[in-house]
Design a protein around this nucleic acid. Structure first.
Lengths: 358, 358
DNA sequence: CTGAAAGCGCTTACAG
DNA sequence: CTGAAAGCGCTTACAG
């Protein structure tokens, strides 16, 4: 449509029209002062009138100024394999925009250890990044960091969980309540009779539990739309993940006492694969099993049919978008979306293949 | 990771190492001849050894050469509203890379009128684009065009339907057989009893019908995995879309003679909204209804619950990827994926909201 | 507060 | 077949 190569208006043109030099126009464009009010106004007027759009290529080439972004997220190993997926998305985004001088430094911390979060965030701040991608797993500590970045004028993009109090430029993640409703829809649609449904929350002592609560809330909300009686068929079971507990023991108590009671099980996070493993081990008649996140651990259970549906939080897309959002903000100086919900993808055995990299 | 701003190797460096001028290195880089074999070899060796990566920003800035892409797709109005969605994705991609001088000219044709396709493609060729995005709806005519582009050395990206014979650089679309299996999975999972299932194909005299056939194939394939008996419960109904026919009349004959026979209906394309409208009008007891594409027309039926699931072909993503693929090929001179399957997204009332722009 | 000049890395005529 | 010079549009010291 618009032929951006033909006689586009340049800084030189603005300068000529304003009767100043290109350098002065540049000073106005970048708000680095040292320009008299009158000339600044005149230049701004002309820029406005001519709808001047800077050539970002020339700008990046001349400035040769690197944009260093820091990503502060949990280790993607062991307890929370989920977090290795956003990294892939970050990498992908980088591939597309590295020529603008954008780079991402990664700072990891332990999901369950707020001290490690603080340590990592301290280290990050000493490197004074121009933008931060933050997974606010440790709620309190993250809020403090957010304040601090705000003081330093460092823009922050939140991914996965939202604790945005106004001092971050964007949140990228899923609508948890709504995702619980999707899970409930799938459960309700597939349940042959009016069997009970077990809702399993794998809880942690530390770390943000907001997700889990909201997902259960959405799940119940869906059922409540049918009748109050329906809601009473939803039985909640909390299993602590801390070392002292034995998940299998608790599952045994709940599921083996009356094996036919539950027609479906909804696990509110990625630990659904543990329940799947338990069901297989005990050889129980398979209830409908729905959970979250296409982890490698869950994938095989899905292929075998033990897990029926998984809801993806699209972690790769979250990583990708977080980098792109900061790129738009820092490099292109464009407005970015404050709340960027990722779609609530439904994964099942038959469409799993094309989600390999999600 | 790699700090691409610190002492990166430049053309100048290559030139110095080879004992030639920058111009000569450039001639080698762009294969525009006029260089002796010996110097060319020497330069290539050094480029290889130093792992030289051209600075794409400087290159684009200096060359000021526009990249004109042509998109040849059906009108997005009237009969095939589907086709307005890839346009949105094309626009979005353009937003991201217009500063590299990439532009897209759109050439439309009538889905059912091969002549209009030929006319549009003639017009397109007179403008000699550097890359083509083609929706090969008219199979035969598209194949000829593909040959022609091949002769001219114009790279072609196919979207939505694959007729790639080796003379296109990429296909972007959905695995139709697999999508039929996803539909069958949803149908089978939700059917309370062993009711029959009606498969409705809205057929056209002209245009590519491959999709429809493959979707039905996938649907049956899934059922066949359970028993041969299951397959016989799948009843096929073809409805021609040509003006002389009356879809409602045919639906009436099939559905009203034995209203309770079909527990589910699978419509193999976006015309599922017509079946939904019919069901509502007749006030029939609602069978499970599954179809394709989140058209505006279908959306309301989904919200009301008449349509249970839609499978999205992600048309916006197809448009986006088609432009990006040509950008990678033409501008970045990178290898691109030959077959780029888009995910098979399952849409239902509860996750529909976040698909607004798909 | 302002301007002139040099430079970012690559490409493009032009001269030889 | 090859090189030197000018230029793409913007930014950055530096001099005044």
């Amino acid at each position: 449509m618009d032929n951006n190569s033909i006689s586009r208006i340049r800084i030189k043109d603005i300068a000529r029209l304003a009767g100043v030099s290109a350098g002065t126009v540049d000073r106005v464009l970048h708000k680095r002062g040292e320009v008299s009010d009158s000339t600044r106004k005149k230049i701004l007027e002309i820029i406005e009138k001519m709808d001047y759009q800077p050539d970002i290529l020339a700008s990046a080439l001349a400035a040769r100024k690197p944009f260093r972004i820091a990503a502060l997220i949990p280790h993607g190993t062991g307890e929370s394999p989920f977090w290795k997926y956003p990294l892939a998305g970050i990498e992908e985004a980088l591939n597309e925009i590295a020529h603008f001088g954008v780079s991402v430094d990664r700072y990891f911390f332990d999901y369950e250890d707020p001290d490690s979060f603080v340590r990592s965030s301290r280290k990050m701040l000493t490197h004074s990044p121009q933008g931060v991608i933050l997974a606010p797993v440790c709620t309190g500590e993250s809020a403090s960091l957010l304040e601090e970045c705000n003081d330093y004028g460092i823009p922050v993009v939140l991914i996965n969980a939202n604790i945005c109090t106004g001092s971050c430029i964007a949140f990228i993640g899923q609508d948890s309540v709504q995702s619980g409703m999707v899970a409930a829809r799938l459960m309700h649609y597939g349940l042959k009779d009016d069997a009970d449904v077990l809702i399993i929350n794998f809880t942690r002592e530390k770390g943000n539990q907001e997700h889990i609560l909201k997902r259960e809330e959405g799940f119940r909300k869906y059922y409540r739309n049918f009748s109050t009686e329906s809601d009473s068929r939803l039985i909640q079971l909390n299993i602590s993940e801390s070392a002292s507990q034995q998940p299998d023991k608790i599952l045994e108590d709940s599921l083996l006492s009356d094996p036919d009671r539950f027609g479906g099980i909804f696990v509110t996070n990625s630990r659904v694969f543990r329940v799947a493993a338990f069901l297989e081990k005990k050889g129980l008649e398979k209830p409908i099993l729905i959970g979250y996140d296409l982890l490698q651990e869950s994938k095989e259970f899905m292929i075998k049919g033990t897990i029926d549906f998984l809801i993806s939080q699209k972690p790769r897309e979250q990583g990708y978008k977080s980098v792109m959002t900061l790129y738009h903000h820092l490099v292109l100086r464009k407005q970015v979306g404050r709340t960027q919900y990722v779609p609530i993808d439904i994964i099942t055995k038959e469409n799993l293949e094309h989600y390999t990299f999600t």
